[in-house]
Design a protein around this nucleic acid. Structure first.
Lengths: 119, 119
DNA sequence: TCGACATGTTATAAAGCTATAACATGTCGA
DNA sequence: TCGACATGTTATAGCTTTATAACATGTCGA
């Protein structure tokens, strides 16, 4: 596996990158939101995004599937799309959580500074 | 504010989108990591990414700055880049945390199912 | 002050992404 | 079985991002 510039990267990094890239599109985040509480067929999703072409929805679903965020299974002539939140949890645990708690720490420091200054 | 397709979106959505898009590049995530523990000058960052052109680094820094993830201040002829983790915390709180805890809930359910099955 | 240094600006080629069109396949039920 | 339906595939135009080049500006110190 190698990046555009040719250096080697680990499979985990590739997965992580795919998830971040999948989340980078607001349309795809909306699709995930639509799948959050229940699985839906592709046709159902298309109805919920009337401004998008059916092909566009499918293309986005393919990106989400490649990132492991959506799992699809065929039932007869329908395709049921299920959300899998695990990849999001992974990047949360390995990446985002650190920054979020750094921000909390920063705010805590700021708060105690302010309190010290205005007794 | 309007998207590529012309529908209206709120300024918060735009900010959120900018943050997600900024995080979508592995190079930019590495830049953030380099700034995690200390602020650095642009020149310092360029030395740490020797495979990238100086202009490329600056362009990435501009994207990070537009997303509010990096705050820059000039000191003489140097530019010091500081990390601001707050925008990451925001998308964490408003978006990612939900999915991460959904994943935890899913795992918990699975675990208790397994335990019930193998007493 | 003047040259080396750090950074900023503008332009551009190449690669990638988004949305759509046109056509193909597979499945259900009258 | 056969037509309507749901989905799949391939191709493509237009826009965006990435990486670089060439040139410009501002600042420090000998």
């Amino acid at each position: 596996m190698s990046s555009r510039r040719g250096e080697r990267v680990s499979p985990e990094q590739v997965d992580e990158d795919r998830v971040f890239k999948a989340l980078a599109s607001s349309t795809r985040r909306q699709l995930l939101d639509a799948l959050k509480n229940q699985a839906r067929t592709t046709g159902d999703l298309c109805e919920r995004f009337p401004h998008l072409d059916r092909c566009t929805v499918m293309q986005h679903l393919r990106v989400l599937e490649a990132a492991g965020l959506v799992i699809a299974q065929r039932k007869g002539r329908e395709r049921w799309n299920h959300l899998d939140p695990l990849p999001i949890k992974h990047i949360h645990d390995r990446w985002i959580g650190d920054y979020a708690s750094a921000a909390v720490g920063m705010l805590a420091t700021l708060k105690s500074d302010l309190e010290r200054r205005t007794p």
